[in-house]
Design a protein around this nucleic acid. Structure first.
Lengths: 213, 213
DNA sequence: AGGCTATTTATACACTTGCGCAACAAGGCC
DNA sequence: GGCCTTGTTGCGCAAGTGTATAAATAGCCT
């Protein structure tokens, strides 16, 4: 009567990715408590038992999922920096703009970010994954800032440069959060405009010539 | 043999507060999944059944706990604004400094903030509690900014004012997060100094004369 | 002192959870 | 085609969950 369920064998890498994606989906939708092995398996189109074939336990699956998330986030964010034939200042502005619009401004990603980060002080593995992503991001910012200031013939010392990077990182993070949590409170491009202006003020750049007052 | 446990009757308000505090402690330490009724009750020094005498269910307890948390956070933050006999600019600086030092820079509070916010897009009650706290905070910022600019004989329009408030709010939030997540990466007072300078740059204020730090 | 009542404990229950394990079958190999 | 490996299913289990409810007792009122 009860026929056994049909299934397909997938390549290991493909299955692992599917399981990680299903995990992130589940966490975003139901939170850490609602992301049960059965929920995750259902979303991945397999049965719960299979998860233990690829991961030692639930905790490791969650850790790998968070690591994957951080990786994708920083990768996306940094992708906006690879512009050939652009002035440092233009690259910085493009970087900020990219980080303050879709798809980086995204409620689902924010939920994931917040959910996992809430456990960072209790789970060193999560804390490390975050720390690495954060420092990578900030170093990227610092490098662009150095280029921008160099193009203006300014030579800041290391401390000043670090402070600029910290402040700019904070501006981007803060606006990113505001945008993710309440996208409908801002008109399209508004956050990016605010961010670019705030960052240029932080760096003491003269306003771009054009019709702004 | 098995003597029944001794207990004391507490006033209703006191018990509710104790339960809410125990809930926040449990969430901060174990996360939403680890904050079970039994854990919470243990921490509050009662047995699990009692919780249902004061709250309809676990969900309502968590919601009230988050509302209480947001209330305390914004209250603390705004307390730094009540300074008599101080220039608007000094009050703004004091406000920023207060928000970027202990006890507002605090890993435990950050964990709570992130954990609850991760569920905000799925729980309208949490979202509302956050939204109200956020808007209250931003309006406070906007009011001080207006005073600061007025003292400088500048008369910004409403849109400019709003943008300043959004940017300043982002700077404070962003630095707050960096401080909570990696306090050991910054020397004491460093974040506050970065924040004050960034905000004064955003408002286009001339650097304070004199060697203040 | 003795009773009343609402706070508090204790226990039961139905359900879900992560995990272990044996059986099964998909798909490559000969 | 038939076999063998192993990816995959299905089921069971003990522990833990939120909720319901009965039994006890602390502390006020008279």
């Amino acid at each position: 009567m009860n026929a056994r369920r049909k299934f397909r064998r997938e390549g290991e890498e493909r299955r692992r990715q599917d399981l990680i994606d299903a995990t992130l989906d589940s966490v975003a939708e139901y939170g850490l408590q609602g992301a049960t092995l059965r929920t995750i398996a259902l979303r991945a189109g397999v049965t719960a038992g299979l998860i233990r074939h690829y991961f030692p336990g639930k905790e490791e699956l969650l850790q790998e999922a968070y690591t994957a998330l951080v990786g994708r986030m920083t990768e996306q964010a940094k992708a906006a920096l690879v512009m050939e034939d652009a002035s440092p200042r233009q690259r910085l502005a493009a970087f900020v703009t990219a980080n303050l619009n879709a798809p980086i401004i995204d409620q689902r990603v924010f939920s994931l970010w917040a959910t996992f980060l809430g456990r960072a002080n209790a789970d060193p593995t999560l804390a490390r994954a975050h720390r690495e992503g954060y420092l990578g991001f900030r170093n990227e910012v610092e490098a662009v800032v150095a280029e921008v200031l160099a193009a203006e013939r300014r030579k800041p010392d290391a401390g000043k440069l670090r402070h600029h990077a910290i402040a700019i990182n904070a501006i981007i993070d803060g606006l990113w959060i505001e945008g993710c949590l309440a996208a409908e409170m801002f008109s399209p491009g508004e956050l990016a405009a605010i961010g670019v202006k705030a960052i240029e003020a932080e760096l003491g750049l003269a306003p771009e010539k054009g019709g702004n007052q």
